[in-house]
Design a binder for these strands. Structure first.
Lengths: 210, 210
DNA sequence: GTTTACATACATACGCGGATGTTTATAAAT
DNA sequence: ATTTATAAACATCCGCGTATGTATGTAAAC
């Protein structure tokens, strides 16, 4: 019973959806192509028609989620902003809010974060983190050039801290079964933490010549 | 060729060492008992003599690393300290220093952190994190009762933030291939971050006008 | 009529667990 | 002190299930 092209695309998406759920709940290694295709309401034949093998499936899953990730990264990449650290703070909290409401993003994070490096998961996360590092680094570099950065940390160190904190926050939130308000607590933390990175304005007897 | 009891214990440890390395480099799921036993210089027969199956091996691996974890946790559990937050800061930096120098701890963290939940990895991490949460929570609770805690965060929130930050820091450090100084940067971050949790002593004006 | 979009059937490989064989430490008996 | 029995500490081998990949069938879409 051959389907139309739209139907074919629909089954393809169904397979991707099923893979997302199975990969997330069972883990990539334990996930069987039979389980995935059965969950999608098709047979392994259909899966092998659309995808070469399990790795290709994971790749496709990754490609499908890339636009969202890219959008979030670009949202923080606006150049020449007059308040880079403020923009960074805003972007981070926005990201947390969006993440908390998007089950698909959460599943992708779990899949890529909990999958072992040899299965391509780490490579993906590395790439995303590298792009994120570059954009954040750019923003923070702008802040430094404007003299807004504390001397306590170098720009690269601030970038590392930001990424590690956000990653750890999200990881723990997912691992804990979402039992604390990610965006709320995260936003408050980011706000306070950002103050650690800002050069102190002027506390009574501080001589800071420009 | 029957070995003496010391020899037997030695091969048992050799198997555990091999499992630690293989699990860490290949991932738990991709790790074959044949690979592990071959790495240990024995056959699968020996492995099955000492351990019931792969899950049992992982359990034994976990048990072997427990004393270290417990020691670190207890190090932060001294009750009735006159400066709970200071103790917490000290314990956290000490933990980072020790972790940075202990390859075995690093491997165990990677194994348990990157292994999928269904294979027992997450359960282990959950338990350790739960104990850690309780001890930290106790410390921070003491700080609150002494009125040393900021009103910005609840004690539980502070605990969550501390654990998430440390976890994220360690995870990113391992994932990045150790390309930033974990203990050094971590200690400086913890020191500054801890100031966010302390109730401000008395700064003339405490609110920041835009 | 040809290609598409699958389903079905089968061939292959691999890892696991267990059965069994073998050697030797160790204790008990002599 | 020597012998004997038992069980520890492995090695070797094999059967089984299971996942994977491929080859083929087939009905509908183009």
């Amino acid at each position: 019973m051959r389907r139309s092209k739209e139907d074919a695309e629909q089954t393809r998406q169904a397979i991707l959806d099923a893979a997302e759920e199975i990969f997330c709940s069972q883990g990539v290694a334990a996930a069987t192509l039979e389980k995935i295709s059965h969950r999608a309401g098709v047979t392994r034949g259909a899966l092998y028609w659309h995808f070469k093998d399990k790795a290709d499936l994971l790749q496709a899953l990754h490609d499908r989620s890339r636009p969202v990730q890219d959008a979030m990264i670009r949202a923080a990449a606006q150049d020449g902003h007059e308040d880079p650290l403020g923009l960074l703070e805003q972007a981070a909290t926005d990201m947390l809010v969006a993440f908390e409401q998007d089950a698909r993003q959460q599943r992708m994070f779990m899949i890529m974060n909990f999958t072992s490096p040899d299965e391509g998961g780490a490579a993906w996360l590395r790439q995303v983190n590298a792009e994120l590092f570059l954009t954040l680094s750019s923003l923070i570099g702008q802040a430094e050039q404007k003299g807004e950065l504390t001397p306590d940390f170098s720009p690269n160190e601030v970038t590392v801290i930001m990424i590690a904190t956000l990653n750890g926050f999200i990881s723990d939130w997912l691992r804990s079964g979402r039992l604390f308000p990610l965006a709320d607590l995260g936003a408050r933390l980011v706000k306070r933490q950002m103050s650690l990175f800002r050069r102190e304005k002027l506390t009574s007897s501080d001589d800071v010549p420009a």
